[in-house]
Each structure stands twice: as C-alpha cells, then as structure tokens.
Design a protein around this nucleic acid. Structure first.
Lengths: 238, 238
DNA sequence: ATTTCCTTTTTGTACGGACAAGTTAATTAA
DNA sequence: TTAATTAACTTGTCCGTACAAAAAGGAAAT
C-alpha cells in the first residue's frame, strides 16, 4: 500500500510559496539565506536547496550567486501570449475595463475545449473585459470558470485590477499551464463594433484553457485581438 | 579574475546529451542507471543526479521512479506553436515540400527582428517550405539564417526530412528558445495562390526568431497559416 | 495457471560535511 | 579622498552515506 509520506522539502517549498503569495516576502525582496532556513526548519542545506530549486522551476524566485534568492513579480502567465511590449513595459498605457461583471450563467458552447463531467454538472461564472492600449480597444476577452470550483469574485475586489493576482494572493491558486488555439478570422459585426474596427477585418481569435493548482478548476478564455497596430508576442526560453 | 572551472556535472550532462543527439542512446530507451554513471565517471550519485536533473529540465529525458531515466523524442520545439494534432499524432497526413531549395541570398527586410552586426555583415541562407495536411497546403514557411554562422544544407540531407533534427544530430545545435510575433492579416495574392485560398482571406502571420545553442546562430522564420480548417495550437506546463 | 511474497534494482529523500566562487561592506593602505 | 585589501556572508559544487519508495522478476504457495 502506498504510504504518501510527507516530504520535508515540499513542506518548506509550500511554506515559502505561501509567504510569497501573501506578500510576506514581497516581490524583488530577498529571501532569508539557505542557512537561515536550515535553522528555522531544523534541516540541512540539501533539503532547503531542493525546496528552493522547486520554487525556481515554478518561477517564484530567481537565485543570484553570492547574493541570495530574490522573489520575482508573479503573473507573467508563464510563456503566455501577451501584447507586444505589454509585460513590464511603460511604452504603452494599458487599461482594462470590465464590460460584463462576473455573473452566473450557463456554459457557452463557444468554449473550444471539452468540459469535464464535474464542470458540465455546474453552472459557470462569466465575465468580459476589454483591454485598451493608448485608449484604443485592442482585445476583447471572455472568461468562464465552473461555479462549483470557485465562487464569483466581484471585479472591484480584484487585487490591483488583476484577476490572476487575486487568485494567487486571495485564494492561493496558481496557474499551472495553459493550452491555446489560435485562428485568424474576419471580425463579426458585434466584435467589430466593440473593438472599433470595420466589419470583416482579420482579427486573431484565441481560445485558452488555463490549468490551475486546484485540480477541478480550469479557467476558459475566448479572446479577440485586433493585431493591425499591436502584434501579439510570446517567447520561450530554455 | 573569473576562473571558469570545469564542472563535473556539466561534463557528464554534455556527454549524455551528445550520446542522445547521435542516437547512441535512442529515443524511448533507458539510460544506464545512476550508479552505472557513478562508476563510469568516478563520482557520486549527487553529481550524476545533478547532470540528469539538467537534462530533465532541458527536455532530453524523463525520469521514472524505480525504473530509470528514459530518452524522450526530441524536437517538440519546446512550447512552440504547432498545428493542431500535429506533433506525434496520426490523425492527419502531414507532408512537407521544399518549394525553394536552400540558397544564398541577401537578407529580406520582412524579417521582423533586428539583426545583429555579425548577421548584417554576412549574407544569409534562405529556403521555403509548404506544409500540407491531408494534401491541402496549410502553412507557407520562409526560413533564413546567417551564412557565416552555418553552411547551407541541402534539403535532401535533412534527417528524416526535418531541418531541426538535422541541426541536432549532425551539428549538435539545440534550440534554446524562441520569440514570436503573431498577426492576423488578409492573404496577399501571392500567398493566397500558394495556399490555394481566395485573396483577402484572414490568415495568421507568425514571425519567429529561434535562439540556438550556438551564440551567433539565430534562425528566422516567416509563416503564413491558413487557419480555416486547422487551428494553431500550443500549450505550456509547469 | 495464478497469486503472493521476497529479493534485487533503480530512483527519491535526507543527513552532514568541505571547499569554491561570487557579492557586499568594512577596513586598511596609498 | 581614493584605491586596494580583507573579512563576512551567500550560493554553487562535490563528497560520502543511509534509508525510503517504486518497479521488475523470480520463487514459493495456492
């Protein structure tokens, strides 16, 4: 029979992760040194380093030889697609407007992924946002998630206006991965109007499923991007 | 002054990587056990495991508790965009036709990335391919790389018809990362003809720069994808 | 023939120690 | 004051050991 013993390095890893998520270890600050953690948890550097290595792989920290382990600003959405110059840049004024407040609805068949039985048995929470760059609407974003997995969150409660930051800091939910499908399609009348473009203009349609650290919680997204001015960009390394 | 000492784990890592790239350790086979490597390299499991951990992170192997370390089929292009059902699937007949043989030309200004001085000072190698799915042309692909970084390779010499496999197995060049820009654009007359679609149809335009393990070698790509039948898909995990 | 048990092999976790290498800040020498 | 040196601290590499946990295969019992 499986024993499922608790692993010491995993406990330390989760402890530090929680402190990061709740801003006890704020972004850009340095964690206590490895030997500090050794004393704190009554263990050896081998085990502490294993925990830190895991957090490094998960993207919570970066290590600097001779200096320490630094907490990184979370929520770069891994290698996800982002608008050119979006993340961490001040080239453009990016603004987000919630055009449909989170509300409970039936699942929308436009979601490009098969739902689990668990999800199908539940209603879902839906909200819509529009992303503006330099006061121009560029991305129309529809979002869904299963009501039985997570309660509705009012947009005024979003931490720094970000849904993902809210999940991390308020619910300790992390994005574990994502799958996307991309298509180039002509703009429908509805979308053309919302993005202020002419009917039929080629736009980028992206369907996303985010996998989270909660096994039964997936986030579904349906994005329409006007790429005439700003391209969508992503990058991967190592 | 920096000493740049050779690291034992790195030597072992590179040794195993080379054996994988040259098929001495073929895909799906199991590597010698960790203790075998300890004897072979006169070291301890700590060091061997560090080497294997690096190969795991680089995606060359997977580890199976109680069984061993298995060599994985390389060339999934990391998290790169791939045609839906493309990688490792037999749902569709995928065929690649080289429409322009690799030849030496001047750099094309359509490349959406700034070139380094080194690259600008050299001519470049260019070739064009068309990807077919079920005998339908779906992707038109232009490729460039600097001539002073890598010689031209004739398409008949591609290992299993794959340019990336050739780089890995014949030149020991690995893809270290990539940056992409995506746009939804109307098909030009030229591209519409080559993809067998009507002029003006929305198509997905992707500009890619691949970073390789050779510091001065970048691969540039310019792709035009007809996404009406088959979506472009990608996923990220962990 | 099938199940159960045990042994062997292999990877995973953890301990404890030693020294190397990079960073920072205080101290010393010019 | 400025530059060089030193000391203290932190992460990186590596050694050697021990036991746990998972997988595989063979032996014994049913």
């Amino acid at each position: 029979m499986p024993v499922n013993k608790i692993k010491k390095y995993h406990q330390i890893q989760e402890y530090i992760k929680k402190r990061i998520q709740t801003q006890k270890y704020p972004p850009d600050s340095y964690l206590p040194s490895e030997s500090d953690f050794c004393v704190q948890f009554g263990t050896t550097r081998t085990t502490v380093r294993k925990a830190l290595d895991e957090l490094l792989k998960e993207g919570f920290i970066v290590k600097e030889h001779g200096r320490g382990s630094k907490v990184v600003e979370r929520g770069k959405y891994l290698g996800l697609l982002s608008i050119k110059g979006f993340s961490g840049s001040t080239d453009y004024k990016v603004r987000t407007k919630v055009t449909v407040e989170p509300k409970i609805v039936e699942w929308d068949p436009v979601i490009g992924f098969p739902l689990s039985e668990d999800e199908k048995s539940s209603k879902c929470v839906y909200f819509q946002r529009v992303r503006y760059i330099d006061d121009q609407p560029v991305v129309l974003e529809n979002n869904w998630y299963a009501l039985n997995a997570l309660e509705p969150i009012r947009s005024e409660e979003f931490v720094e206006g970000s849904f993902f930051k809210t999940l991390s800091q308020e619910y300790l939910i992390e994005i574990m991965g994502a799958e996307q499908e991309l298509r180039s399609v002509p703009a429908s009348r509805d979308i053309a109007e919302k993005l202020g473009i002419t009917f039929g203009t080629p736009i980028l349609h992206i369907s996303i499923r985010f996998r989270t650290s909660w096994p039964n919680l997936n986030l579904y997204g349906d994005l329409y991007c006007n790429t005439t001015e700003y391209a969508i960009r992503n990058s991967y390394f190592l």
